[in-house]
Design a protein around this nucleic acid. Structure first.
Length: 643
RNA sequence: GCCGAUGUAGCUCAGCUGGCCAGAGCAGCUGAUUUGUAAUCAGCUGGUCGGGGGUUCGAAUCCCUCCAUCGGCUCCA
């Protein structure tokens, strides 16, 4: 008999050789029907793999991310089986589960897979799933594993096996498909009730562009077909919210081939929106003791040689700008920090000056690869809401706190209620690859963790994710559809102060090296606006909305009164306009709704007589009649709610 | 940059097994209408069918090439 410990701490006895599925059956049939995999002493196992020793176990169902992972990993195998049956002779790379589904990288040889083939594969997958195929786990000697795939002619698997140690190699067989795999897998394929192969893409073997490009097939599966339907609806909704589509419809920004790809053109409404965001942050930063600076769009090549950016990124950037002077070269600035370092060193500093916080909405240019460009989220010219804080190592903690406060203010004002904080630390086993003293790293990492703790951020700690120059804290928001976006960042930097030989005079009258903190709460204005558009589906918070209200006169007779209303609203700092077309009220309302203008003010005979407006709220409908004062108050209250 | 797909009016799309002057809806313009909570009616304008080259008596349609966009890959100071 063996002792099995459950997550709640209870311990029960079972016969050796029992598996997680049997255990689940003992608890309830319903649970057993839903078990996809289990964890045994923290390791994920097949639910059907026998347990021979005492263990603590957890059972995973579709509701656990581990359960989903098992489901999708098995789905990748199922897809591979279907593809192998349909197109004999194909070779397989890797086929893992991912955040939303799974993929498999396949060398399809002569056959070129197209979208049209996906339907065939889906059909075959469902047929195979219904066969209730089990996944048989076999431990295989390395030599046997090699001969199996050598015979099959699959050089990709051979390469993978080559890197594994004898004794830790397992195969899984389901139906006609056998794969090198560490598992775990579903009890059987009948859990897979709905399949959608979502896309097709090229992917380099092992992510190395010098190696062969395989065909990557992406898919997702569900245990209920209803879940697939919901997923497809979510995809539809995401498409409707796509900032590229809304950006065009709401006239926020555009691109022109003549200007160049990846170079956004902000239209008046988008520019006003962006300016409002910038003004908001400027005000917050002023209160927080930031000093504005302005630096040019280009810099001498020597600046970037000093900063180290030239060596690392020079060749991937825009080509240098030359001048009539032979040998003189300038670069479009890819970063603001080197310029800010020069501002710092423009005069000597005392420890009493610190911290110094230089802020700039700095536009930078980076030559992103053409295939990488994407709407406003990946562009070649963008504006960072950048600032650099020069401080002593002891001030890091306070400064982080200050920045977090700003970021929280922004999230609140823009209705990002869910976010994830990640702290990236250095790899404790590989300390040599980082610049800066051990002591400073420890101090900074401790400070960041303490701040996260004190601010109740519930941050995720990731070792080895820090940049070589310092630890950092990143903020990822979840938008209204649950998608994650990386936005704000706070990074400690020991490197640039060193390279620029920055220093301040301490109380001991000696030179000391300041620490630099890079921070950008929005990240970049372009990316942030893109995320904001998708988060709120184009229905911006009232304080940001390019137009807050539109006045809709019932007929020409009321245009005069409409003008009076507009005057009043403008005087009350409310952004409004009049729809004076000779259209019916229904038409004007429809158009205003489509433009997502927050408030529609219908004015006709009655309103003119009593000096009022009939208020209709976007997406909600008629709110009734308001006096002008009441309406202005309504707006003021709604704006202040978020500030 | 690489793989795959797509590119027809400002937008959404039809035409594309080669052959009547390349179409529709919306938007825009003009006129009529003076309107009460999601589309008033009529007329008009607008496209060298992404660019270039080729095949053909004839190309939006077939081929080549370049560009851009989309989905991924790689990268992201």
């Amino acid at each position: 008999m063996i002792n099995i410990t459950f997550p709640d701490g209870t311990v029960r006895q079972y016969e050796a050789g029992v598996n997680a599925l049997d255990i689940a059956k003992g608890i309830s049939e319903g649970l057993a029907r839903n078990v996809l995999s289990a964890s045994v002493n923290g390791q994920i196992w097949d639910a059907t793999r026998p347990l021979h020793h005492d263990a603590s176990i957890r059972l995973f169902t579709w509701n656990d991310s581990e359960g989903k992972a098992t489901m999708w990993h098995s789905s990748a195998h199922l897809m591979a089986e279907a593809i192998e049956q349909l197109y004999p002779g194909v070779k397989f790379g890797i086929g893992p589960d991912i955040e939303n589904g799974f993929y498999y990288d396949i060398d399809t040889g002569e056959k070129v897979l197209t979208e049209a083939d996906l339907e065939q594969i889906e059909k075959r997958m469902l047929e195979l799933a219904r066969e209730k195929q089990t996944f048989k786990r076999v431990e295989v000697a390395k030599a046997d594993a090699i001969s199996f795939f050598r015979e099959k002619g699959d050089e990709y698997k051979l390469e993978l096996i080559d890197e594994l140690n004898d004794g830790e190699i397992t195969f899984y067989t389901s139906g006609t498909f056998t794969d090198l795999c560490r598992g775990p897998h579903l009890p059987d394929t009948s859990f897979i009730k709905a399949v959608k192969l979502t896309s097709l893409a090229g992917a380099y073997w092992r992510g190395d562009e010098k190696r062969k490009q395989l065909t990557r097939v992406y898919g997702i599966t569900f245990t209920k077909s209803k879940d697939l339907e919901e997923y497809l609806i979510l995809l539809e909704e995401a498409k409707k919210r796509d900032h590229r589509k809304l950006g065009r419809e709401l006239e926020l920004f555009t691109f022109s081939q003549r200007v160049g790809s990846g170079l956004p053109l902000w239209l008046p409404k988008g520019a006003q929106l962006r300016e409002r965001l910038e003004q908001f942050l400027k005000k917050v930063q002023k209160e927080a003791g930031y000093l504005p600076v302005i630096t040019p769009h280009i810099g001498n090549v020597n600046l970037y040689k000093t900063s180290g950016h030239y060596d690392k990124y020079g060749k991937d950037s825009f080509r240098p700008i030359t001048t009539p002077i032979p040998g003189e070269e300038f670069f479009l600035k890819p970063m603001n920090c080197p310029h800010h370092c020069e501002i710092f060193s423009a005069k000597p500093h005392s420890y009493k000056d610190l911290p110094i916080r230089y802020a700039e909405f700095g536009t930078v240019y980076r030559y992103e690869q053409s295939g990488e460009l994407h709407g406003l989220t990946r562009v070649r010219g963008f504006t960072q809401d950048d600032a650099h804080i020069f401080c002593t190592p002891d001030q890091i903690k306070t400064e982080f706190k200050g920045v977090i406060k700003i970021i929280m203010k922004i999230f609140k004002a823009l209705d990002f209620n869910e976010f994830i904080t990640q702290i990236s630390l250095r790899d404790p086993n590989n300390k040599e690859k980082y610049i800066g003293s051990d002591e400073n790293w420890e101090k900074a990492e401790r400070a960041i963790r303490e701040v996260a703790e004190e601010e109740g951020l519930n941050a995720i700690l990731v070792e080895g994710e820090a940049a070589f120059y310092g630890p950092k804290m990143d903020f990822m928001v979840k938008d209204a559809l649950g998608r994650k976006w990386q936005l704000g960042t706070i990074q400690v930097d020991y490197n640039l102060p060193e390279r620029f030989d920055l220093n301040y005079i301490g109380a001991d009258n000696e030179k000391h090296r300041p620490v630099m903190i890079h921070r950008a709460p929005f990240g970049s204005m372009e990316r942030f606006v893109a995320v904001l558009v998708e988060h709120c589906a184009g229905k911006f918070p009232l304080w940001l909305s390019p137009e807050q209200a539109i006045i809709l006169p019932i007929s020409e007779k009321y245009h005069n009164y409409a003008q009076n209303v507009l005057q009043y609203l403008n005087n009350s700092d409310i952004r409004a306009l009049i729809d004076d077309r000779s259209e019916k009220a229904g038409r004007k309302i429809r158009d205003a709704e489509l433009k997502k203008i927050p408030f529609m003010l219908v004015v006709g005979e009655r309103e003119e007589a009593e000096g009022s407006v009939s208020v209709r709220k976007h997406g909600q409908g008629d709110l009734g009649t308001f006096s002008l004062e009441q309406f202005a108050e309504l707006i003021r209250a709604e704006v202040e709610k978020l500030m």
